[in-house]
Design a protein around this nucleic acid. Structure first.
Length: 1141
RNA sequence: GAUGACUUAGCUCAAUGGUUAAGAGCAUUACGCUGAUACCGUAAAGGUUGAUGGUUCAAGUCCAUCAGUCAUCACCA
């Protein structure tokens, strides 16, 4: 134990941190914080794996601070918190980075560069910035185990994923299906949603849009429409009915198999003429969309409404079409109606394509139909739209792909065969096939309206060509099968903030679709499914052991002539890299003896990270053999589900979802009990940070300049973590100065005097009831603080906790307790009162170091160790091994805290009065007058009277009782209490109350109730239903705040003035002492020029002055040479201050 | 386009539906205090609480509409 508290020459947070970091790594402080809690209840935390192929940014600092502070807090609360780190190493961003680096595109992989070589590059790239990440982790004080992280590309990790996939496969939750995905014909590849979200992908384009006319078949279903026509007195020649459907992609029309309507949408049958051919027709469309196509419509239109024009010249005729509504009905009424195929070619003729064309060409109902655009009837081509596909399956429409993967119409598509549906080859002579289709339809009486339509449409980011939605084979996890269970379990998760779980996540679950696992890339976890060429047989492999057995089987079957060498090597070494291209070289044998190849897909990287609760441990071969339902290595035990996870809100549909999905799918459990999502970090102007804008904040620079603690504190206390935060360096500076500066100074103050007096907390702890009021007050406040901070931390509200601590340090500890108690530390002998002061301040500081330790781990540890080095009160070497403070309810004295507040308010008011009349605080004043409203208020004030007097330099406090008519009172209703009782009478009562006379208020107070007539009706008011306060004291300068009013006697008597002079003199001498560099304890001698105006004053208070300035001698001389000139209340004099001895 | 969140002083944030008709801190200005202080205190200035309606005795707070910002999803006939 050292004898002295360490003192510093300045607050340098980054330097402190360097020192603490060194100490942590020397002593293994992190490991010890875990091992010390061996046997304690575990608090399970999952680290969301970052991808180390990019540089860490400031936004990583906030989520990691959040994670770190919770883990540190829980450790201090007595839990054992293991934190295994991890790295996300697969996925598109990594591949794209490597492509860019090598200057290749996806198509080149396997050609210009082998898959093996390419994956090797990826493997190198994924941990490129690992050092940077480790460095940030260390410097920001994030305690996480980086020695043994899980890495998603490792075999053990992938093997666990396989095991999970096989579990899903066994449950029938893993299936292959066609899905409609964005596809770039120009690039010949499907695009991930990530690729589609590249900037500049969506472009406004003008496409030929077409409202096509689908001719209704007359049958039972549609009979009511045909009857309506017949009943209409006009014409019988016009008996064709068409369903109108709009499309911006006319090339999909040959693949049309259905028309979708909204069951509850109102539709109308309209008699009109074809605007191109002028022949009479009848059309069906949504009523709401009539104005788009017909002039003169209004909302009141109904059956029988007509619009006719007298045709005089062709131009009017062309613009305006006559029409009449002849029937109105709901979508559900035409559901099931049949229509003729719009464009019939060999390739889409149902007669030759029984497989492809199902029960097609009918009207079906779908809930995605809106009446915003088009006609309210949706042209449905199951191959070219996700909605279309879904509803096509549901209604057994079939599935027609009229376009090949190069973007051309297939053979058998008549005159369109072989033509590109969009200009995919930069052909300058390209003729838009969509226009030709529209022209054909026009001619055939099958187009109602053709026009250019501008909309935004996704383009391939690589080729700049429009994307097609195209059917591709993919493997899915049937998450929809357990949707209800996922929703149900989600309700048990503690989300911070709640809205993320209920809203964002809840809605997402409600609208869940099956999880498309397939990715046609190279660097990722291969899907462990092998299929025979005819697709008749397949196997899902769930472990390396199983794979080996299958290989041996296949080997025996003699499948390895060509690749035998490789396989032999693999078997010999017992090691198989589970990545491409190796796994693809493995050919297995089916049960019936056919060769099976692996399906080429990789799986979505989100499966990688969502599986980390299991894969971070890897499979335990023994448990696997035993058929254990949780065959994971030992770390697994007791580590599922997590008590706590935290990441950015952008993970809601990412990691938060995949964790939840896999846990519910495989283990019917939540994966985490509490989930804190933090918002984005924006720049100071509220813009998203991006490299392009150059507004990215470098976390290293920030931490090096201002310290990790100040950065962490700022990030946590500035705004709730889940709100987006505007990051401003000035905010960190403020935190550094205000919070850490204040705390540092308080410590410095303590250390300075404790070292002088040799305080080491050796004396017995002085019982609270033997300590002065102010000590009991600060300890009461401290314990109240501890209580509330614990509550907030338990509720994952670190922002609120931090703000409370800030307030305490600033307002209570530094600017009230220490300021008022300064004298106690340097005046007088080392006896009871002084010991009380030291013990109290020590307790505050030491408790604070533990309170702030989770948020600011460095500074707190520094102070803690400095304090503890002298006193040895804690038997631990770091604050992070200590227990978190627990409130001592016995120390909390609310009335005491209340009256101290009263003292602070009174002082503040008196100071403002002084200011008003321009009398400085050093000038003593005689008295203040405080009206008291009740006896308890008086008692409260009396107990802090001395503090007030000292603080504002006033000699006495006089109280005015309520029965004193001297004070005028004010009365107002207590709105909370009266609101419910009175309701609408509230206003009148409020008005009546303000009119009450002083004697009436007095009467009210005496009786405790009052009969107040309002609008002729008596209203009985209780005293508790009103608030009475004093307002004015006639003839005095007053100030008030709340119910507290003070009046100050501002008369400065000669006596007071003399004392003021003396004090002023002391102040000047003290300044000279300080400037001369005297020690606190140095005795001095003072010579001062004898100026008449001051001499009396100073002589009179000579004893006082000498005591204050530690002078043994104070002499007045007629003349002083070479002295220091000082000024006291506008009078100058010379003094000589000399050190004695 | 849909859904959700947000919008309070120049800036960052407060304010269980309840009243000296919205409070702090920062920044600005002026004056003070300090033998711990890089602080602190007192004051000045700064607001139609994004807009418009509504519910209520009472709205920054609840509801509706609109605008702006952001996020997520989609780009869809």
């Amino acid at each position: 134990m050292s004898a002295k508290y360490r003192e510093f020459t300045g607050l340098n947070l980054p330097a402190f941190e360097q020192e603490i970091l060194a100490r942590w790594s020397e002593t293994g402080a992190f490991e010890r914080s875990v091992s010390l809690r061996e046997g304690a209840t575990p608090f399970v935390f999952y680290e969301g794996p970052p991808s180390a192929n990019g540089m860490p940014g400031i936004h990583h600092v906030i989520s990691r601070t959040l994670k770190d502070l919770v883990c540190r807090y829980k450790t201090m609360k007595g839990f054992q918190v293991k934190r295994k780190g991890g790295w996300d190493t697969h996925g598109l961003p990594i591949e794209l980075g490597v492509e860019k680096e090598l200057g290749i595109t996806k198509e080149d992989i396997g050609k210009k560069i082998s898959v093996e070589e390419y994956n090797k590059k990826c493997r190198e790239a994924v941990l490129r910035y690992k050092d940077k990440w480790d460095d940030l982790t260390r410097k920001m004080g994030y305690w996480v185990d980086l020695n043994d992280p899980y890495i998603t590309f490792k075999n053990e990790y992938i093997e666990t994923l396989w095991w999970l996939l096989k579990e899903l496969y066994k449950k029938g939750l893993l299936y292959e299906s066609v899905s409609i995905q964005p596809y770039s014909p120009a690039a010949g590849t499907g695009l991930s949603s990530h690729e589609l979200n590249q900037p500049g992908t969506y472009k406004d384009v003008k496409d030929t849009s077409c409202v096509a006319m689908f001719k209704a078949v007359r049958d039972e279903k549609s009979e009511f429409l045909f009857k309506a026509i017949l009943n209409n007195e006009q014409g019988t020649s016009n008996d064709e009915i068409f369903f109108l459907a709009w499309t911006t992609t006319p090339w999909t029309l040959p693949s049309n198999l259905g028309l979708t309507v909204g069951a509850n949408i109102d539709y109308v049958l309209v008699k009109t003429t074809n605007p191109y051919l002028y022949n009479p027709i009848n059309v069906v469309l949504a009523k709401q969309l009539m104005p788009k196509y017909f002039d003169g419509t209004s909302t009141s239109d109904g059956v029988g409404t007509k619009y006719s024009i007298i045709i005089q010249d062709d131009s009017i005729k062309k613009k305006s079409v006559e029409w009449e509504i002849i029937a109105e009905f709901k979508g559900s009424q035409i559901e099931g109606c049949r229509y003729d195929q719009l464009l019939k070619f060999d390739a889409n003729n149902p007669r030759f394509n029984k497989e492809a064309v199902g029960d097609a060409f009918k009207v079906i109902a779908g809930d995605f139909v809106t009446t915003e655009d088009g006609t309210g009837i949706v042209h449905t081509a199951p191959a070219f739209g996700a909605d279309d596909y879904k509803i096509g399956i549901k209604n057994n429409l079939g599935f027609l792909i009229g376009v090949d993967r190069t973007g051309r119409f297939i053979q058998g598509m008549g005159e369109f065969a072989g033509r590109y549906v969009k200009n995919y080859t930069d052909d300058p002579n390209y003729v838009d096939v969509n226009i030709d289709i529209a022209v054909k339809l026009k001619k055939e009486n099958r187009a109602f309206k053709v026009e250019k339509y501008e909309h935004s449409y996704p383009h391939c980011w690589r080729t700049d060509k429009p994307v097609l939605y195209y059917p591709l084979d993919a493997w899915f996890i049937k998450t929809t099968a357990i949707k209800d269970r996922m929703v149900q379990l989600n309700k048990t998760i503690n989300w911070k903030p709640k809205s993320t779980g209920e809203g964002r996540f809840g809605n997402w679950l409600e609208n869940m679709v099956d999880w498309n696992l397939s990715r046609s890339r190279f660097w990722g976890t291969p899907l462990p499914i092998w299929k025979t060429e005819d697709g008749g047989e397949e196997k899902c492999i769930g472990s390396i052991e199983e794979l080996k057995k299958e290989i041996e089987k296949a080997n025996k079957a003699g499948f390895y002539e060509s690749t035998a060498k490789i396989i032999a090597q693999i078997l010999q070494r017992g090691k198989i890299d589970l990545h491409k291209p190796y796994v693809d070289e493995i050919i297995l044998v089916s049960d019936s003896g056919k060769p099976m190849k692996r399906v080429p897909d990789l799986i979505d990287v989100w499966f990688d990270s969502g599986a980390m609760p299991y894969a971070q441990w890897g499979l335990d071969q023994q448990k696997l053999k035993e058929g254990n339902s949780f065959p994971f290595r030992e770390g697994w035990d007791g580590a599922f589900p997590a008590d706590f996870i935290a990441e950015g809100v952008d993970q809601t549909r990412g990691w938060f979802y995949t964790l939840h999905a896999i846990a519910v799918l495989v283990f019917d459990s939540v994966a985490y009990k509490t989930c804190v999502s933090n918002g984005l970090v924006l720049d100071k102007n509220g813009n998203k940070m991006s490299k392009r804008l150059g507004n990215v904040v470098d976390p290293f620079k920030t931490i090096e300049t201002f310290g990790a603690d100040a950065t962490r504190w700022y990030l946590i206390t500035n705004a709730s973590p889940w709100d987006n935060m505007k990051f401003d360096i000035d905010g960190i500076k403020e935190v550094q100065r205000k919070f850490f500066g204040t705390l540092y100074n308080t410590y410095q103050f303590f250390a300075l005097y404790a070292n002088v007096d040799g305080f080491a907390f050796k004396e017995k702890y002085v019982p609270l009831n033997e300590r002065p009021e102010i000590d009991r007050w600060i300890l009461s406040s401290l314990n109240t603080l501890v209580k509330r901070v614990n509550e907030f931390m338990d509720d994952y509200e670190p922002t609120q906790a931090g703000r409370l601590i800030e307030d305490f340090v600033d307002e209570h500890l530094s600017n009230w307790y220490v300021r008022l108690c300064r004298r106690r530390f340097w005046k007088g002998e080392y006896e009871q009162d002084k010991i009380c002061a030291y013990q109290t301040l020590y307790e505050c500081l030491e408790t604070l170091t533990r309170l702030i330790a989770p948020i600011s781990p460095f500074f707190s540890d520094n102070l803690f160790q400095n304090l503890n080095a002298v006193t040895g009160r804690h038997k631990v070497e770091s604050v992070h091994h200590a227990d978190y403070p627990v409130a001592n309810a016995g120390a909390i004295d609310l009335p005491l805290e209340e009256r101290m507040q009263l003292a602070q308010d009174a002082s503040s008011l008196i100071l403002s009065l002084r200011k008003k009349v321009n009398i400085k605080v050093r000038q003593p004043l005689q008295k203040v007058l405080i009206p008291v409203l009740n006896p308890s208020m008086k008692e409260q004030l009396q107990r802090v009277e001395d503090l007030i007097k000292a603080e504002v330099n006033v000699k006495e406090v006089e109280y005015l009782n309520t029965d004193n008519t001297f004070i005028s009172k004010k009365i107002k209703p207590n709105f909370v209490a009266l609101g419910k009782k009175l309701g609408s009478k509230m206003k009148a009562v409020s008005a009546a109350l303000t009119e009450l006379k002083q004697d009436e208020i007095a009467l009210f107070e005496k009786a405790g109730q009052f009969n107040l007539p309002v609008d002729g009706e008596p209203v009985i008011l209780q005293i508790a239903e009103v608030e009475i306060s004093s307002e004015d004291i006639p003839g005095w300068t007053v100030a008030n705040k709340g119910s507290l009013t003070v009046a100050l006697d501002v008369t400065v008597t000669p006596e007071l003035e003399a004392e003021g002079n003396a004090r002023e003199f002391v102040n000047r001498i003290q300044k000279i002492r300080k400037d001369s560099g005297f020690e606190l304890t140095d005795r001095i001698e003072v010579k001062a020029s004898a100026i008449n105006a001051l001499k009396d004053s100073l002589a009179r208070f000579k004893d006082y002055i000498c005591a204050e300035i530690l002078a043994d001698k104070l002499e007045f001389m007629p003349e002083i040479q070479d002295g220091t000139e000082i000024e006291i209340n506008d009078v100058s004099l010379n003094v000589i201050v000399s050190k004695k001895g």
